[in-house]
Design a protein around this nucleic acid. Structure first.
Lengths: 189, 189
DNA sequence: ATATATAACTAACAATCGTTAGTTTTGACC
DNA sequence: GGTCAAAACTAACGATTGTTAGTTATATAT
């Protein structure tokens, strides 16, 4: 059972995704929930808070996932990369609307949430990069520029939500298998 | 020498990219140009027209590029794919701001421009897919799901503008070489 | 110099926005 | 049934939005 606040959040996520943060009015969100705009303020502080909650939740889920993977120090770089792909797929399937905001709506975050979000994002990217670099020094991956591998892999994983929305019937395990093959084959030695 | 209208368009592109379509006011654009908001209407019809011009211009540049590549029927699927990568890189370098809008700001297009844009986009994607499919039936590419190859490749190419903005010093030829290697190696048999 | 077109300006419009104040309804517990 | 807090409501606020009307300045051509 979802709390009222959670209902508001998920309605907001769906609308922010469909129309963008600024084009979505509090009256739009209220209508989706089935109440009047002013009533929303019994549950949340501001429209901005809704965006912050959604984006920081996703950022923390990714950070947590990365931590878990890095804690398993016995994994090879290739295995870590496979788990990262699985992480992105799982979070995308479980939070399709919220994850869509990660791509473009973070620009509407105001300080200090914006800085907080960007730090989390940069940390995540640096940890991702470290895994690729380790794989290269171990001779597992090709000598393609690390930045290019990172950007190519991440952009595919970040766009996944868009593709998944149009292909929900796709088998998750099969999707994971093919994406792993597609992304890792390009860089594996 | 840029016409006044072109100056307005490029300022709008830069601001739309930075703050989003709805968060950018006509007064913002006017200030960037160095005039008052009302004066803009001596050159354009509406704010919406600015977005339409920018997005449809990009869509047509991609369609045109695809046509040129398909006209060279002597090319192999792999060569066509290489040229598509080169096309994306060239258009990204030459229109970094406008291309940034392709990723997310098209949702703010109103009918009928929105439908026109989406048709161009879908046609482009179908032609892209056809090239991959041909490569597969010719035995050049692996038997990974065509949709997944398409989505993985396109998402990387579409995100390129973001990476390029932070790495402008990168040598274009070298970038093209590494991206080709990274993207094609993942699917080549 | 005069005429003309282009492009700037000021001022204001109706609409919509996020949010607040104050009030009423709802529902659970004694 | 009365009490009380949670959560809904109505009404309105000041600010900002895209755009228009009407006017003035600038530059070019005759």
């Amino acid at each position: 059972m979802q709390s009222r606040k959670e209902v508001i959040r998920s309605c907001a996520a769906r609308l922010f995704r469909k129309k963008g943060y600024n084009a979505t009015s509090m009256r739009d969100i209220a209508e989706a929930v089935g109440i009047k705009a002013a009533s929303i303020y019994n549950h949340i502080k501001s429209k901005q808070e809704l965006l912050e909650d959604l984006l920081l939740m996703m950022a923390h889920l990714f950070s947590k996932g990365m931590e878990d993977i890095n804690r398993s120090s016995s994994l090879s770089s290739e295995q870590k990369l496979e788990r990262l792909i699985a992480l992105h797929i799982r979070l995308t399937v479980e939070n399709t609307d919220a994850i869509a905001l990660v791509a473009g709506e973070w620009v509407h975050l105001k300080s200090p949430a914006r800085e907080e979000y960007l730090v989390l994002r940069e940390t995540y990217e640096n940890q991702f990069k470290a895994i690729i670099d380790t794989g290269k020094t171990e001779g597992l991956f090709k000598e393609i520029d690390t930045e290019i591998i990172l950007f190519s892999t991440l952009s595919t994983l970040r766009w996944l939500y868009s593709w998944y929305s149009k292909n929900r019937q796709y088998n998750i395990v099969e999707l994971e298998r093919q994406m792993t093959q597609c992304l890792i084959a390009g860089i594996k030695r």
